[in-house]
């Protein structure tokens, strides 16, 4: 436990000393803020148009949940930004230790791989929270100012989805970083892997064969959609959790095999 906490603290320190963390945070807040503004504007415009049309034709507009549309759009965009930024924070997590030779210190210390991997992953999860939590300001504004107010549970489920998705992406990034000692290679490979996982369902045919279903199941975006609608489905939660487990397990395998090659 003490070793694990020491690794968490050290990783957080490393993350927040490097300029990358601040650049990532700044870009993330700027883009999420900007898109929240744009989405809000679009939805308001759409609602006004409908009101205007219904006035013209003298009929009541069909029901439309404007706040839910904002939330859906916002979490949709959030996932895309995570896809781009997470490679930046995971790229160095093992690659940099290898490059600097500090992996020799870690491997010759009485640490287990579990403590090392979980410590690093925990630090990254905490960083993900530092990214996500401030965007709650947007949601609070929406909650206070929109009429009718959005359902609180919709927003919470959205955040849970973003958190799980982020966690799964982080685990993949950690694994890829453990394969190389070059940060840039790690970042490019991670981003490429994310893109493949993102668009993989497009390669699935229309039929419902087992192959097609499997490919669709693997798409990390498909599993995210329900969260943005405020629907909490345990199969998606399990999907992301098993993704995290797989990523960390592969990391451990990679560290073990690295020891054989030197």
């Amino acid at each position: 436990m003490r070793n694990y906490l020491a690794i968490v603290t050290k990783e957080l320190r490393t993350l927040f000393v490097s300029p990358i963390a601040y650049v990532v945070l700044a870009v993330f807040f700027a883009i999420t803020g900007y898109f929240f503004y744009i989405i809000l504007g679009n939805v308001i415009e759409f609602v006004m148009q409908r009101a205007f049309q219904s006035q013209q034709f003298g009929a009541a507009p069909p029901p439309f949940d404007a706040p839910a549309a904002v939330i859906r759009g916002f979490f949709g965009i959030l996932s895309t930004i995570l896809l781009f930024l997470i490679p930046m924070i995971t790229m160095g997590i093992f690659a940099e230790e290898k490059k600097r030779g500090t992996i020799e210190l870690l491997f010759t210390s009485p640490l287990t791989h579990l403590q090392l991997i979980l410590g690093k992953f925990t630090a990254l999860i905490l960083f993900l929270l530092v990214m996500l939590v401030p965007t709650i300001v947007n949601s609070i504004l929406l909650y206070l100012l929109s009429e009718p107010a959005p359902r609180l549970v919709t927003m919470l489920v959205g955040y849970l989805g973003a958190f799980l998705l982020g966690g799964a992406l982080l685990a993949v990034g950690v694994f890829i970083s453990s394969l190389t000692e070059n940060q840039i290679v790690a970042a490019v490979l991670t981003f490429g892997t994310f893109l493949i996982l993102w668009v993989i369902d497009a390669t699935a045919g229309t039929g419902s064969t087992i192959t097609n279903e499997t490919i669709r199941y693997l798409s990390i975006l498909n599993h995210y959609e329900d969260f943005t609608k405020g629907v909490l489905d345990s199969q998606h939660v399990i999907f992301y959790l098993s993704f995290i487990f797989l990523g960390l397990f592969l990391t451990s395998v990679s560290l073990d095999s690295g020891k054989w090659r030197g």
Partner: peptide, 29 residues
């Protein structure tokens, strides 16, 4: 590993840490 002190050819240092913080981290692990 608890009983061995190992100094690799390139000292395994976290450059952004202070000497104290680094040694404290190593002592802990």
């Amino acid at each position: 590993k608890k009983r061995v002190g190992y100094m690799p050819e390139h000292p395994p240092l976290y450059e952004e840490m202070s000497v104290d913080a680094y040694l404290r981290f190593v002592a802990t692990i």
